[in-house]
Design a protein around this nucleic acid. Sequence first.
DNA 1: CCGGCCTTGGTATAGTATATCGTACTCTAT
DNA 2: ATAGAGTACGATATACTATACCAAGGCCGG
Lengths: 162, 162
Amino acid sequence: MSSSAAEHSHADHHDHGKCIADALAAAREICAQRGERFTELRGRVLELVWESHRPIGAYAVLERLKADGRSAAPPTVYRALDFLMEVGLVHRIESLNAYIGCAHPGAAHASQFLICKDCGTAEELESPAIDAALAAAAGDHGFKLAGRVVELSGTCKSCTGS
Amino acid sequence: MSSSAAEHSHADHHDHGKCIADALAAAREICAQRGERFTELRGRVLELVWESHRPIGAYAVLERLKADGRSAAPPTVYRALDFLMEVGLVHRIESLNAYIGCAHPGAAHASQFLICKDCGTAEELESPAIDAALAAAAGDHGFKLAGRVVELSGTCKSCTGS
DNA sequence: CCGGCCTTGGTATAGTATATCGTACTCTAT
DNA sequence: ATAGAGTACGATATACTATACCAAGGCCGG
C-alpha cells in the first residue's frame, strides 16, 4: 500500500532538496540564536553532510571541498564538523567513523541510529523507550549517565523488501 | 566511607588475577568446543586485554607484545583481536577504538557498556530491558536487526563517590 | 583606527587499521 | 613418518582517520 513514499530511506522519492534546504535554514536560525557564526565553509560542509542520508566520512567531505576548487586540509573539515556537532546540527556515527545530519536540530535529544548494511542509510530515532531503558540500567548501577552511543546495524525496510 | 569494595570498578580490591585466569580458562574451553586453536599469541593477547577493566587499544597491546621481546607488527595484533572477537571472547568499544574482555564468554549475547570517563573502566551489561527496547524500536521501523552498539559514557559509582 | 577574538589556511605528525606475500606450523590421512 | 592441505604467524608497505601547532586574515566592539 501507501502510494505515498515511505519515511526516510534511500529508496524514497522524497524531495531531498528540501531536506538540505530545511537543514540549512535550521542551521542559520540556531546559529543566530546561539550567537555563533554560520560561515560559508560551515554551510558548505553541512550541505555535503546532507547530500544523502548515508553517513559521510570526514575525508570524503574533504574531497568534495577540494572539488569545489577550495583549498582545504583535514583540519578544515574537522573544525567545521566539530562545530556542527557542538551546535547539534550533525551527529557522529562511531561505528563508521562518519558523520550525518541531525534529523531534529535545535531540540536537545539523545538519538539512536538504524544503519542499513545494504544501502548504507542511517535513520535517526528518538525512542523514549530506549532512552528510558538506558537511564534505568545506568541508574541501577549507580552510573551517572552523560553520553549515549546507540547504533543498530541490520537491514532497513526498503532493502528487506527488495 | 564504605570500607567494603563496590562491584567491579577500578577502585575494587577484587582478585584480578582470578579475572584473568577465569578468562583464559573459558577461552581454552570455548576454543576447544569450537575446534579453534587457542595459540600462545592469542592467549597472550587475551591476557593483555584482561590486564585491566579498561578497554585497551590495539597499539597498546602491540607495545606490550614487543616488550615481551616478541616480534610483532599491527597485523599480528589485529588478527588475534579479530579472532578473539569472532569467538566471543573480546568486545570492541567503537567509541574508543579499543578492546575489552567479554564478561560472559560462551553465551551468545547482546551487551551494553557503561564507560567511566574518570577511571576509564568499562562495565559490561546484558540488560534484557535495553535489548527489548532496541528490538521493539527496530521492529517498529521494519528494520531487521543484526548488530548492536550500545556504549554509555558517564561517571561510575566509585568515581561519583570520590 | 586599534586590539582582541574567532575563523580559516597550511604543514606536520599522531593514531588506527588493512592489503599482501611468504614462511612455518599443525593436523590429518595415508 | 610423511605428504599435502589448511591455518597461523612474520614482515613490509600503505591506507584511513584525527589532531597539534603556528600563521594569517576577517569581524567587531571600543
